[in-house]
Design a protein around this nucleic acid. Structure first.
Length: 848
RNA sequence: GCCGGUGUGGCGAAAUGGCAGACGCAAAGGACUUAAAAUCCUUUGGGGAGCAAUCCCCGUGCGGGUUCGAGUCCCGCCACCGGUACCA
């Protein structure tokens, strides 16, 4: 005999049944404009999930959190009369698949296909209303053909600073088109990870180690493909304003792009032709510059170093070179540096100041050189203290703070023509002075660097590029897709030479030309997948124009820029995927390939789910919850509802097995509202059900629930929507006879949350069609109005009594009744009533 | 350091400036049962008074403030959790 706990209702049977039904009937397939049966009169709603990387570990409970939220919304919108696009796909290129392949000797395509099947099966078991006819896979040649095509659009475009947008390279009038392409080749210091055998983007390096695997990463110069994302820095910041995104994510992007307004200042080197250009955000403090610092790698260091300092400078440079980024960071507490023996001339006062090199100045930011104002910069101050350099006050704090090390705004002093001016004004004046005297200019710097776009990997999109006589050239569109060569040995070469270089036949393009052997990073495929969902089968374009305008277009009645109507995913993509995708989308918009400037109108981050112990889930802690187990024990509907009932979607929250059981009990109560168990242990239609009208109190619950659930879904407050449905069920559990019309409405409201049980009961009760096809119920405000209201009587803000008054009682009547109430009289006895506040429908507050 | 976020019962949480703790979990008691499970009913923030119905005091991290009224708004702290870090 089975020791298994008896199921509170037969979820295992009905869930499989309805999943099969939806699959066979393509219930949630969305039609495109132009297709037979498409209803153009309906508004559209595009709900998007961040598609998963199909890892070997399978789905964990974090994935379905966001997916359930979007599923509820998409089912709700569908019932509310929208054409809903709700797709799913696979971000299937990537390092883990390649590394697993290297370990096991299986081709990544094989393991990827297996993992995709597993993920798809798991998602179907949860009953998501995805349009599986639109499934995309970034490793499918029919897909990455267009990833390569978009790369060619980037390659064949440049950013015109006059129009502030991308244009075809043919409009460029300069000498060297290769110097302005949006996709270009550069010899740049890259993050080389020898353990992974590849270079990594800055975003993929965490604390000097690879984000994947935690291997050490070192800087070395290499020839790489870059994407000119910095050209879009300003638009990537300013166009955030119109988006319905969490402010915290917008801020993360702004900080990552790191726009700083300031000025470049040229310092002449004494006794030399050379000039050192520095960048500063505080040109107002130029009078306080008491020394210059160059990055150790700065190009001028060798030229300006005095003979006496040559040895010391060379030794310092060597020491820096051998340090990894991580070591540099770890040693950051103590400033180091050496003087070059050279002196620079401060253009504003002619003073000679020493030139140092130090690794606290970074070569990649600004000009790789700074003017040090130790009085008003923390780092410069530390450095000056350590090496005994002069500290000269040029700003007076207005709040009476100590001027030494004061970095805020104040009033200029010891600064000639700036004296007495506030910092903002001094900045402006000094900027003008520098420009009119040709000592510098006002500029803007960004922390954002161009996007390092090539990887030395096998399992990625090959570049549609060939090399001939040392020059690169684009493949023809007709030659796409360019598929990777079939290889048995796709291990890294152990050198910076990519694995594709081993495929000699593939490599050879013609007598003279060879193929590019780098591949694109994993981000490439995810930069535009949301566009492909609109038109996944299109072989003539990456997305059909009309179809793109329909699903991605803006609502003409709304000032919003349009795009995906709701995008749900984790915060971990705040500065990676979400910035890259916006960049590609803007380029495509500039080139008139898509119709909106932004891809994602509304973004919501789901919070992470912690283990039952309140710790982050991890294998080593042994607190990982597997969705399959939960579904096996309680069913998919309970799993879905619990994930939503746990708490606010965006909040971090711990898993609770007892909590799932509680939600499972709720669904079982819904089941038993409609079904009784007979002597034989079979479920039959409940005898308490009757075709009677609900009474007034029941009507109020029904309509309050319609109102609350609808509103809560719109604001993604699923936890309170479920709570309200629990109130509904509690109100009807004891009712006999039970109005069947009430149950009908409950099934409609609950359907987006628990689609299987509601569909089954709908059928069992003999209602026509399917719940999913019913229109969303409308609530009747009249049903919520009571003839009599209960008011609270407060004395000095404390509740002392309650009062029942007629709905239409006027303030004076209410006030009189409140004052006359026995307990109010008790509390006010012998006191002067100073004031009475009546809040209609709520309370009366008597102030004594 | 800087930037975000969060602090409410034993736990997850709820509350347009208007009855703090809806809803769920856990716990306790009861009904049903030979018994258990399941189910149904009741109680459950802390303290105090009363035979009782009831009533009083305290209570949303801490300290101030605004207001007739503050979990909610303002000022100043503290703690925890994320992100980020020599960006001139």
């Amino acid at each position: 005999m089975s020791t298994e706990r008896r199921k509170p209702y037969p979820f295992d049977r009905i869930e499989a049944k309805w999943q099969q039904f939806w699959d066979q009937n393509r219930t949630f397939h969305a039609l495109n404009p132009g297709e037979p049966g498409f209803d153009a009169s309906k508004p559209k709603y595009y709900v998007l999930d961040m598609f998963p990387y199909p890892s070997g570990a399978g789905l964990h409970v974090g994935h379905p959190e966001g997916y359930t939220a979007t599923d509820i919304l998409s089912r709700f919108k569908r019932m509310s009369g929208y054409n809903v696009l709700h797709p799913m796909g696979w971000d299937a290129f990537g390092l883990p698949a390649e590394q697993y392949a290297i370990k096991t000797g299986q081709h990544p395509a094989v393991t990827t296909a297996r993992n995709v099947d597993m993920f798809r099966g798991q998602l179907k078991r949860i009953g998501f209303a995805y349009d599986w006819q639109r499934e995309v896979n970034t490793t499918d040649p029919g897909y990455f053909r267009w990833t390569q095509w978009i790369f060619l659009r980037l390659y064949n475009s440049w950013f015109n600073p006059v129009s502030q947008k991308a244009e075809g390279i043919e409009t460029y009038r300069g000498q060297d088109p290769d110097s302005v392409r949006l996709a270009y080749v550069a010899e740049v210091p890259v993050n080389w990870c020898s353990a992974l055998g590849t270079v990594l983007a800055n975003e993929e390096v965490v604390d000097g180690k690879s984000e994947v695997g935690g291997h050490p990463v070192e800087r070395r110069p290499m020839r790489q493909w870059m994407l000119r994302i910095t050209a879009y820095a300003d638009r990537l910041i300013s166009e955030l304003d119109g988006l319905d995104w969490p402010e915290s994510i917008k801020l993360l992007q702004r900080n990552w792009i790191g726009r700083s307004e300031g000025a470049e200042v040229s310092f002449k080197i004494r006794g030399s032709e050379h000039e050192v250009r520095v960048f500063t955000t505080r040109p107002d403090t130029l009078f306080g510059a008491t020394y210059l610092v160059l990055a150790p790698e700065h190009a001028l260091v060798n030229d300006i170093t005095a003979v006496s300092q040559k040895a010391a400078v060379a030794a310092y440079q060597d020491a820096c070179r051998s340090k990894s980024d991580m070591e540099r960071t770890e040693l950051s507490k103590e400033k180091t540096g050496v003087p070059t023996g050279a002196f620079a001339i401060n253009p504003v006062n002619g003073q000679e100041i020493p030139v140092w090199i130090a690794d606290y100045v970074l070569t990649g930011y600004g000009t790789g050189a700074i003017m040090a104002v130790p009085a008003h910069d923390t780092r410069d101050f530390e450095f000056a203290e350590k090496f005994g350099l002069p500290v000269l006050q040029v700003v007076t704090p207005t709040g009476g703070e100590d001027w030494k090390g004061f970095t805020g705004d104040g009033v200029s002093v010891n600064s000639g023509f700036l004296d007495g001016l506030p910092t903002s004004e001094s900045k402006r004046r000094m900027g003008e002075w520098l420009e009119s005297n040709s000592h510098g200019k006002r500029t803007i710097q960004y922390k954002l660097r161009d996007w390092l776009f090539s990887r030395q990997r096998y399992w990625g999109e090959p570049f549609p590029i060939v090399w001939e006589a040392g020059r690169h050239r684009a493949l023809n569109e007709a030659e796409l897709p360019l598929t990777p060569p079939a290889m048995d040995d796709f291990r890294p070469t152990g050198t910076p030479e990519p694995p594709l270089s081993k495929a000699k036949d593939w490599l050879r393009y013609s007598e003279q030309a060879t193929r590019e052997t780098n591949t694109m990073p994993q981000w490439a495929g995810s930069c535009w997948y949301y566009l492909r969902y609109c038109d996944p089968g299109n072989t003539g374009r990456f997305v059909g124009r009309e179809v793109e305008r329909y699903w991605m277009g803006a609502d003409s009645a709304s000032p919003k820029p349009g795009g995906v109507d709701l995008y749900v995913g984790g915060t971990e993509h705040a500065v990676l995927h979400l910035l890259y995708a916006r960049f590609w989308h803007k380029v495509l918009f500039d080139l008139a390939e898509v119709s909106t400037p932004e891809p994602f109108q509304r973004l919501v981050n789901q919070g992470i789910i912690l283990g039952e112990d309140g710790q982050k889930m991890s294998k080593s802690r042994g607190n990982v919850v597997n969705p399959d187990d939960v579904i096996g024990a309680c069913g998919a509907d309970a799993f879905r509802c619990y994930e939503m009932f746990m708490g606010p979607l965006e909040q971090m929250k711990p898993w609770s097995t007892a909590g799932v059981e509680g939600v499972s009990r709720f669904l079982a109560r819904v089941w038993r509202l409609a079904m009784d168990e007979n002597q034989q242990g079979e479920w039959v239609r409940s005898a308490a059900l009757a075709d009677v009208a609900p009474d007034k109190a029941q009507l109020k619950v029904i309509h309050a629930t319609i109102k609350k659930v609808g509103e809560d879904i719109e604001t993604l407050s699923f936890n309170t929507a479920i709570a309200q449905m629990m109130v509904f069920v509690n109100a009807f559990t004891g009712a006999s006879p039970r109005p069947i019309s009430a149950l009908r409405i409950l099934l409609q409201l609950l359907n987006p949350f628990a689609p299987h049980i509601t569909e089954e009961l709908w059928q069992q009760l003999g209602f026509e069609g399917q719940v999913a096809d019913q229109p969303w119920p409308e609530f009747d405000p009249q049903a919520l109005i009571e003839d009599e209201l209960e008011l609270v009587v407060q004395i000095n803000g404390k509740v002392r009594d309650k009062l029942v008054v007629k709905r239409d009682a006027v303030a004076a009547e209410v006030e009189a009744a409140a004052l006359a109430s026995p307990r109010a009289a008790e509390w006010t006895a012998g006191k002067t009533i100073r004031k009475v506040i009546v809040v209609p429908g709520k309370l009366v507050n008597i102030v004594v």
